[in-house]
């Protein structure tokens, strides 16, 4: 009887370890940061020499916009990005597939990929200028080479991870080699290819500044570099913010593509 009276609820000790996204936190934090920055600049805590106020950067943006060069910079950069990234990604998927499918390609191309991947493409820019000309060629080539290698690695990794059971199933039903590659291996590697695309798109934006280092009149990278060499920090921040927004847009687009193409993952 006394045991009945002395009873206690079993203490809960599970739960936790499961972070969930909370809406509107991210914009709120961003806004708070900008407000704090503006406040710091106005009160003099943050010296104008160290960092220009957000309002000054915004003024610089308005100047840029009113000068009519904003779209010129953005469109020039976008052209280079889209061109370089799409060719680099297409070639990367192709070579990644070859490495994933054929022993000869794997033994020959994989060591080469590993050797070339870590080379900073910025270092090769002078060579690219000699090979592809000082115009668009060298800029597109820098981005192309930068996106090619991560795509190769993502693609062959994705092919390697396609469930062997599914391939054996295809063989057991007498499917042709091409059908197995097209209908089993490619869709199976698609998640890895898309996350590779996320990385290569970011690399492409990073390389944009490098690509526009020499012989570029327009482009976000050229704008940033120009501002940097003049120590026009307000313009520098405008350029950097533009690159950041570009990155957000690309990431959003790839998120959309993942939703559309990988809806079977649920």
């Amino acid at each position: 009887m006394s045991d009945q009276i002395n009873r206690k609820k079993v203490p809960f000790r599970g739960g936790g370890f499961k972070p969930r996204p909370i809406r509107f936190v991210a914009p709120f934090v961003f806004l708070a940061l900008v407000l704090f920055w503006e406040f710091g600049s106005r009160t003099g805590i943050i010296s104008n020499l160290v960092l220009p106020a957000p309002s000054e950067a915004f003024q610089a943006f308005l100047d840029l916009y009113n000068s009519g060069l904003f779209w010129k910079h953005v469109s020039t950069s976008l052209y280079r990005l889209v061109f370089g990234w799409s060719i680099g990604t297409a070639l990367g998927i192709l070579v990644g597939l070859l490495i994933g499918l054929f022993s000869l390609a794997r033994s020959s191309l994989l060591p080469l990929t590993s050797a070339f991947f870590p080379i900073p493409k910025i270092a090769l820019l002078p060579l690219f200028i000699i090979w592809f000309g000082i115009g668009e060629g060298s800029k597109v080539a820098t981005i192309l080479f930068g996106t090619f290698f991560p795509t190769v690695i993502a693609t062959y990794g994705g092919v390697d991870n396609v469930e062997r059971g599914l391939i054996r199933m295809g063989q057991s039903f007498g499917m042709s080699w091409l059908s197995i590659v097209r209908k089993i291996i490619l869709p199976g590697a698609l998640p890895a290819i898309l996350s590779g695309a996320r990385i290569s798109a970011s690399i492409a934006i990073i390389l944009l500044v490098a690509a526009e280092m020499i012989g570029a009149e327009y482009g976000i990278g050229a704008y940033v570099l120009m501002a940097g060499s003049l120590f026009a920090t307000d313009q520098l921040i405008v350029g950097v913010a533009m690159l950041s927004i570009l990155g957000l847009c690309v990431s959003w687009l790839i998120g959309k593509a993942e939703k559309a193409l990988l809806n079977w993952r649920g």
Binding site: F173, P187, L262, W264, R265
Partner: peptide, 13 residues
């Protein structure tokens, strides 16, 4: 000769 596998081997997509 047609197989039925233990793990079903259905394409999830």
């Amino acid at each position: 000769l047609t197989y039925i596998f233990q793990d079903f081997a259905l394409l999830p997509w």
